[in-house]
Amino acid sequence: MTTSVVDNGVNVEALLGARTAFADAPQIAQFQWRSTVSWIKGTHSRAGVETFFGFAEEQRHSTDFSFDIDHPLQFAAQDKGITPVEYVLVALGGCLTAGIAAVAQQRGIQLRSVHATVSAEMDLHGILGADPDVRNGFSGVRVEYRIDAEADRQEIEAIVAQSQKRSAVFDILTNPTAVTVSVV
């Protein structure tokens, strides 16, 4: 029996409150996420993420975020930023880790440290068009967690499993998504 207050820095009441609010007004749950990307030179581009739509109105991040995207020197590029596929790993690890914090908070489990190592295999024959049987994307993605928490192994595994179940990026990676690209 622990008497200390569990605090992983997640406001679970606010999240559950949003779920209740959505039940009363389902349309406010409709969100749109946005990014702009501008080419700079070679494989170097810069992405901006500033606004999104949700809770029935236009929203804005507290800061205008900017991200450089490039390819490494080994690809005869300038390495001004990480590769697009690495952003996918960042997104997956970030999403699952946020989920772990939220689920642990809701279950009253204090986290002390959470570290993820995200890796993905890719056969470059795919994107180079050298072998039509090889897909462009990852052949597999692995996430390894090292978690120190006031919980036994089974509870920790349950948190990690629940986080995957509720993760947007896990869903995006494991299920097909319709993508429409147009020129305007």
Partner: peptide, 20 residues
């Protein structure tokens, strides 16, 4: 037909739930 890549997790969830 396309199938989700989440089979391992739904199996882990079910095994954990069974364990409980």
């Amino acid at each position: 037909a396309q199938f989700a890549g989440s089979l391992a997790n739904v199996c882990a969830l079910a095994d954990l739930k069974l364990g409980r």
